[in-house]
Design a protein around this nucleic acid. Sequence first.
DNA 1: GCTTTGACTCTCG
DNA 2: TCGAGAGCCAAAG
Length: 97
Amino acid sequence: MNFNEKVYNLCKKIPKGNLSTYKLIAKKLNTKAYRAVGQALNKNPYKTVPCHRIIASNGHLHGFASGLKNKARLLKKEGIKIKDNRVLNFKEVLYKF
DNA sequence: GCTTTGACTCTCG
DNA sequence: TCGAGAGCCAAAG
């Protein structure tokens, strides 16, 4: 299994209503390639990967490809509060694997 | 095969 | 609190 697939695999494990960060994923993979994780998710070929559930480590939405508004609304539907591109209840919905 | 770039994060001033 | 620099890894040019 290559690096990207590991990333996708972990993302799919995030339950609905939760989210995670690049940092945690990289940590779980025993690497510090935070940026590589972002790259992999940016152009992930798998529709099954909920890439919108992955955000920056400080709970800030750091710029998604398909528009922050869209992703923010999507997350809201799952019970995550978004305001000004930031996750309000970040600590509560953070999934730590 | 080397260089650049990017949905990142940490540290320092 | 905020910006700049460094470190990290993979993919594209």
